[in-house]
Design a protein around this nucleic acid. Structure first.
Lengths: 125, 125
DNA sequence: GATACAGTTAAACAATCGCTTAATTGTTTA
DNA sequence: TAAACAATTAAGCGATTGTTTAACTGTATC
């Protein structure tokens, strides 16, 4: 593979590409990341990793209309990140119990801790 | 916080929100995820985590025009995920040496391994 | 059954995104 | 200095995205 590149600077680079994922694999991964690429959606997802809630309460928590929240929930559900359960008039959502969900959740917590130095010390000067 | 929600189902949910990140923190995180939300950009990023390359070679690797690749590189650089270095006519890009970059890279590898069962066994039936 | 409440869907719209082509900047070599 | 090559930028475009308002299901209660 490296030989048919336009430029051949003597970069040792062949062995890295032995385990290069396929284009479709990257597409699958980027679809997951895309879900977390919206600031509202990542907040909803985080909330649903920590509790099970109905649409009205979620709307209040993120400060948005229920159609807007419902729209985000639909996407998260289509992506397999959350599940829902109807109880009476209300529909309760929560994070799905899957490996990608756990990974994304953990990733969010780590990224917050790394990129937001004031996290955990809100009263810093 | 939980008490002023529209609905109060007896969900024990207060303690989870003691360490809920701020809205701006989620925005920072979603900006990072957004970078990985494009299938081409995540491929370029992965490549630059494994080798240093010039724009022309990157273009050949992902099968796109150099303006298109340059556009993606600009975004990744603005987000602090990659750095560049000029050497003669060529500009070499590589992943930045930062905690978020390492985290994202590791995350990509993990997600590929989890969501793409054929990964590592390309010759499966 | 009628009403009220919870949630979803639809239509419309502005905003953003990613790519293409074309022009421009920067660097090297003839 | 001129020509060739690498890379970036700009303008234009089609497509996608996120939100709003309004209409529409679904469930429980009166």
């Amino acid at each position: 593979m490296p030989s048919n590149l336009p430029h051949d600077h003597g970069q040792a680079f062949e062995h890295a590409f032995d385990h290069m994922p396929a284009v479709e694999d990257f597409a699958t991964v980027s679809d997951l990341f895309k879900q977390m690429g919206d600031p509202v959606r990542v907040r909803i997802f985080w909330l649903l990793c920590h509790c099970e809630e109905c649409v009205i309460n979620l709307s209040a928590m993120v400060g948005m209309s229920s159609p807007a929240v419902s729209h985000h929930l639909k996407q998260l559900k289509a992506g397999g990140l959350i599940v829902s359960r109807r109880e009476g008039k209300e529909v309760y959502y929560r994070a799905a119990d899957t490996a990608p969900v756990r990974l994304l959740h953990h990733m969010i917590e780590d990224l917050v801790a790394i990129t937001c130095p004031n996290y955990g010390h809100p009263d810093a000067p």
